[in-house]
Design a protein around this nucleic acid. Structure first.
Lengths: 143, 143
DNA sequence: ATGATAATAATAATCATTTTCAATTGCAAG
DNA sequence: CTTGCAATTGAAAATGATTATTATTATCAT
């Protein structure tokens, strides 16, 4: 996989802030870009440590905060007490079903909903760039 | 104000779980039902203690968790490290159009979207109690 | 290579939320 | 109306995620 565009964005952001590119930052970012779901910091650290076993918690936290700031990661809270970061997918946006009992998260897509959102927005003269749809309830196991 | 319907829902939920109705629970719920914004646990405790000064943190946390579980409160996280709860208005749920430039917020409702949400949820075996839909973009003035 | 500066890993500290537990309360059967 | 017992409570301790600290190490322009 090639993340040259994302890497470019990150590098530009670091430059602009007078920050440096490091082995750890690059590897954490690279690892994150390969993910497809909303990964928790702990899970990400696990993946990262398979190659670089000495990378610490704080570095992952700091790096993900950076990626969020430069628009490469979306910070999401699903109410289970953990922050998760979502890699911005190449193939479009997905919405979430969240179990309020066991915190299970299921992704789904519904093109019609997206379409209706655009209509509602247009009705109020809004130009929508981004949206967030979360449905809360009980999953099959907790119903 | 009269919250008989909400109180009924809460009582039914407690009954079904073999839980009891208590002075503290009732008062915390009543206090919460009067709120109109996203109140933090700490703020709610403050309001509650004006009348019942000895009610503890844990009881407020436990009660709000209950209200969330039976669909009477929406748990919201704004990324500031605190949980907030939103009281569900009597006249139905509102979705939000949010301007990323001037922060204007417009509420809207779309019955078809709600319907499609139910369908998506059912497809995954979820029972949805509440939802959150936020559309981010530019309002007419900022477009 | 050197030096100034930023970044890191490990650790401790912080802060919101949960759990624990002894004391209290609600409720239903008698 | 009392009694008995399970559920609930408040206070304090514990937990768990996140952040700050600090000595050490890595980066990069010179």
């Amino acid at each position: 996989m090639n993340f040259s565009k994302k890497n470019e964005t990150l590098k530009a952001y670091l430059d602009a802030k007078g920050m440096k590119s490091t082995t750890q930052r690059d590897f954490i970012a690279e690892t994150f870009f390969k993910t497809t779901t909303h990964i928790s910091l702990e899970e990400l650290l696990g993946k990262v440590r398979k190659k670089h076993s000495s990378i610490g918690y704080a570095t992952v936290y700091r790096t993900m905060k950076l990626l969020n700031e430069c628009g490469l990661a979306i910070d999401r809270q699903f109410g289970d007490g953990q922050s998760r970061y979502e890699n911005i997918p190449e193939d479009g946006h997905h919405d979430h079903l969240i179990c309020i009992k066991c915190s299970k998260i299921v992704e789904f897509q519904n093109q019609k909903i997206e379409q209706l959102q655009s209509e509602s927005a247009k009705k109020h003269g809004f130009t929508v760039l981004n949206h967030k749809l979360e449905l809360y309830g009980y999953c099959p196991d907790c119903a």
